[in-house]
Design a protein around this nucleic acid. Structure first.
Length: 470
RNA sequence: GGCGCCGUCGCCAAGUGGUAAGGCAGAGGUCUGCAAAACCUCCAUCCCCGGUUCAAAUCCGGGCGGCGCCUCCA
């Protein structure tokens, strides 16, 4: 398996440093609001990485994804809502879990929260360690990381430090720093803010320290194998995580840095001021299924910006329909022996699919292989060169594709939920069959239209009539 | 201002030196009570201009256009 590494700006062969288990950390959501579809591009992208490592690479996973449940936004939000911080962030964590599930994102092994006592303790320990190594200083009860003490600072982002220093838009925090590039590890208590005293003086953690501390606490000794997140985290977040972790341990923090490009809406980054922020719920409200959203996210290379449009969602619906229709056709095969040619063609497709995914997660090329196989098998089925005995092998191949893509099973679950009671559909199909036998086609068409209006499409095939969701 | 990415058919999107995958949409046909689905056929020379090469969408230079990062941010 080969992956692009932001640290080296190159595609490199990947293997876990320790044994067969990949130790991976993902910077999760800051839970001050419901996650938007841009957030979920990242999380679906990470999910595909995770699945590819498991099902193509054959590795085990120890995957940590955190929730940032304390920062300026969560504190302000909780205050506005009149809720305790923990209670306020709970609701968005819950919402994230629901959205993630609905998008077919596999649960990860650990989902720590910054304010869990053991994590705050780990942060304090790391800050102490940094102090012992001479990387910190204090001002007014806050503790800062002194970048000048770490010569390798900037190796990930490769930014022009002089430029940062001279820039007018540097951190406008009220906290005093010796140097604009320095960043805060622990913020001294301010009136009305939540505060913890775990050995760094009363206060709350800076943003970056939580990820360093939780990653090493849960994944063990560095280097970990992969650290992931959205591109916008490269600087300063990930750069600072490296500074903290490597400053504290003296060892490399992570072998691979994996970043997912932004989802754009209307060709722009989503932002509240532009008014182009959509949530998972918004997609549902427009009558789309989340399998279509996941499909869109899968249809482009993760390192390229992806422009989200509603037209694109419609196209994704249709593409997905082609796959599920094909699978339905395979499921309806009857009679006939197994064909060697079919098995060979299927094996070829699986092999190519895996190769595409192993090549830095080329899901678009993988989908291309999948559709090529569909065409080939459709032609073969028309020529009656595919038998019922071939079906399990074909099914197994698509199950494999979907272990990585995670979109067909999602679609299946959606399809299985009828828009109207199953009995009503069955009754309609039955009544229509009667009408057709009587050659009362007007009545047959009326019934079909009636069901269509209720969101059920009927299709007549050799094995009778089947239905699917509109 | 600094750094970086991108520009491939109407739309989406692979391909990064050997003569343009795939999906959606569209046109014609086969099949069907009619549909739907499926199948067949058709549908691009890769933003522009130079250069390197036997050979470039793919490499180099210069334009034009879009986006992102440099500040909280997926």
């Amino acid at each position: 398996m080969r992956l692009y590494n932001t640290l080296t700006r190159q595609v490199e062969p990947f293997a876990p440093v320790r044994n067969n288990t990949v130790r991976m950390y993902t910077c999760g959501l800051t839970v001050y609001a419901r996650g938007h579809i841009g957030n979920f591009r990242t999380f679906v992208g990470v999910d595909v990485l995770r699945r590819a490592l498991k099902y193509v690479g054959g590795f085990q996973m120890h995957h940590v994804m955190n929730f940032t449940d304390v920062d300026d936004k969560t504190i302000t939000g909780a205050e506005k809502a009149g809720l305790p911080l923990r209670e306020y962030t709970d609701q968005y964590i819950q919402a994230f879990r629901e959205d993630a599930l609905a998008l077919g994102i596999e649960p990860v092994e650990d989902t720590p929260r910054a304010t869990d006592p053991e994590n705050l303790q780990a942060m304090a320990d790391m800050i102490k360690q940094l102090g012992e190594h001479g990387h910190t200083y204090q001002t007014d009860g806050s503790i800062y990381f002194k970048i000048a003490t770490l010569p390798t600072y900037g190796k990930l982002a490769r930014l022009d430090h002089e430029g940062i220093q001279a820039g007018a838009r540097v951190d406008s925090d009220e906290y005093d720093k010796e140097n604009a590039r320095d960043f805060v590890l622990w913020k001294a208590t301010k009136p009305g803010e939540p505060t913890w005293d775990v050995g760094c003086g009363p206060g709350r953690p800076g943003w970056h320290i939580e990820c360093s501390a939780m990653a090493l606490r849960l994944l063990g000794e560095s280097p970990i194998d992969i650290h992931t997140g959205g591109v916008d985290l490269v600087f300063p977040h990930h750069e600072n995580e490296i500074a903290q972790s490597e400053g504290a341990t003296g060892k490399e923090f992570s072998k691979f840095w994996f970043h997912i490009e932004h989802l754009l809406v209307d060709n722009q980054k989503m932002s509240k001021s532009v008014g182009n922020v959509y949530t998972v719920q918004d997609v549902l409200d427009r009558g789309f299924r989340l399998s279509a959203l996941r499909y869109i996210l899968l249809s482009a290379y993760y390192r390229k910006q992806l422009n989200f449009t509603w037209v694109g969602l419609e196209q994704a619906e249709e593409s997905l329909r082609r796959i599920t229709d094909f699978l339905g056709r395979v499921g309806g095969l009857s009679g006939g022996v197994a064909h060697v040619e079919v098995a060979t063609r299927v094996a070829e497709a699986v092999q190519r699919f895996d190769a595409a995914l192993a090549d830095d997660l080329n899901t678009a090329a993988g989908l291309g292989e999948l559709f090529d196989l569909i065409r080939a098998l459709n032609i073969a089925m028309d020529a009656r060169q595919v038998g019922e005995a071939d079906a399990p092998g074909i099914q197994a191949a698509f199950d494999h594709f979907d272990q990585v893509l995670g979109v067909l099973s999602l679609r299946h679950a959606e399809e299985a939920t009828p828009p109207i009671p199953q009995a009503e559909i069955d009754a309609g199909i039955e009544a229509r069959q009667d009408a057709r036998r009587r050659r009362d086609f007007a009545e047959a068409d009326r019934i079909r239209q009636e069901l269509l209006d209720k969101g059920v499409i009927l299709e007549d095939g050799p094995k009778g009539t089947r239905w699917k969701r509109r």
